[in-house]
């Protein structure tokens, strides 16, 4: 639990994982390279006291996750951004099946995202329907950089992607998280741009598109799109991790997002376990935009804006009544443990 201005804040970590990046799960050299690259991100932006050894980073336990998010990390709920990477990891990296084990254990704590891949073609429609029927799938995480059968990426504007988005409509899935971020592969397909979001957002105005990592390193392109499209949201994962070691950049990113996108359309995310939410949430709660940026952009990161970003915006997207949800969470095993600690 964290307070801003004396008021308790409901925190939804909009972007978190429970992965298996251990050597036993590496399918080939890509698996090793993948997890090492993640670890570079971890080292690059974590404050010293939050750095993990590589062994733990490759595969952490349920207990680690529960502690890092809920017991110590000020997080009330987390959104599982399932990531498959089956061409790199034998059992997948963090599939919805893997994540479901935790959802079963703590059903009120998590929002489970599934996925689709247009390269499955029509043959994948049934698999997709079954996934939504069998699991409590409430959103999707799309990874346009995923490798599949020799192809190394796809676009949200591909005709087959549209067929799947139509299926989302039919099945009542409204929130689509899309990875648009640093480092990952695809060749000229979309390595440098977020414009496919623009097409999909215009053509599916009833779906919400949460652009994870705010398109970094394509923040500017993302801002132009999000400004125009009502249903495009900014997912702060990766950007939020700048807050400790590069606060000025973080402030500039926030000033831009507040100006172009607005405080109602920004969602907090830690990208756990690349970074642990504790230090990010704490720093965010006390963060002040520097005066020159406030002046220049005419925006401010007010306590109200912080509350929206940390949880209220995500709660609205997922139809969560915060008061009712808090009451429920106080009763689950984690809530009871937190209650006991506080007493």
């Amino acid at each position: 639990m964290i307070t801003i201005d004396g008021q308790e804040v409901f925190v939804i970590d909009g972007h978190m994982h429970f992965w298996d990046g251990s050597p036993q799960n590496w399918r080939n050299q890509w698996g090793e390279a993948w997890i090492k690259c993640f670890y570079d991100y971890h080292l690059a932006l974590s404050p010293k006291e939050a750095v993990w050894p590589f062994e733990k980073f490759m595969k952490y336990s349920v207990d680690d996750l529960v502690r890092d998010l809920f017991l110590e990390g000020h997080v009330d709920m987390g959104i599982f951004n399932s990531t498959y990477l089956r061409e790199f990891f034998t059992n997948g990296f963090n599939t919805h099946e893997q994540n479901y084990a935790l959802v079963q254990q703590y059903p009120d704590r998590f929002i489970l995202c599934g996925s689709f891949d247009p390269r499955w073609g029509e043959a994948g429609f049934d698999t997709f329907r079954r996934m939504v029927e069998q699991y409590p799938i409430r959103g999707l995480k799309l990874y346009t950089a995923e490798w599949y059968n020799g192809s190394r990426g796809w676009k949200l504007s591909d005709p087959m992607a549209y067929r799947y988005l139509e299926l989302c409509r039919e099945l009542g899935i409204k929130n689509i998280h899309v990875h648009k971020g640093p480092t990952v592969y695809p060749l000229s397909k979309d390595a440098f741009d977020v414009h496919d979001i623009d097409y999909a957002a215009t053509d599916f105005p009833d779906l919400n598109f949460i652009v994870e990592h705010v398109g970094l390193p394509r923040l500017d392109d993302f801002c132009w799109i999000a400004k125009q499209e009502k249903n495009v949201y900014a997912g702060l994962a990766v950007a939020s991790a700048f807050i400790a070691t590069r606060p000025r950049y973080f402030a500039e990113i926030m000033a831009n997002l507040l100006y172009w996108v607005g405080e109602d359309k920004i969602l907090f995310g830690s990208d756990y376990a690349i970074w642990t939410p504790k230090w990010i949430v704490e720093a965010f709660a006390r963060f002040e935009l520097p005066e020159d940026l406030k002046q220049e952009y005419g925006v401010d990161l007010t306590p109200q804006a912080k509350r929206k970003i940390l949880g209220e915006n995500a709660a609205r997207l997922y139809g969560i009544d915060i008061a009712a949800q808090k009451a429920k969470l106080a009763q689950d095993p984690i809530g009871q443990q937190l209650g006991a600690q506080a007493a």
Binding site: L45, T183, L216, P217, L219, D220, F242, R246, Y249, I253
Partner: peptide, 16 residues
């Protein structure tokens, strides 16, 4: 906005 982006990316690349 473009410049913030360049600087943030550069900072990230250096750290990585």
């Amino acid at each position: 906005a473009t410049v913030v982006n360049l600087r943030a990316s550069t900072a990230l690349c250096e750290a990585l």
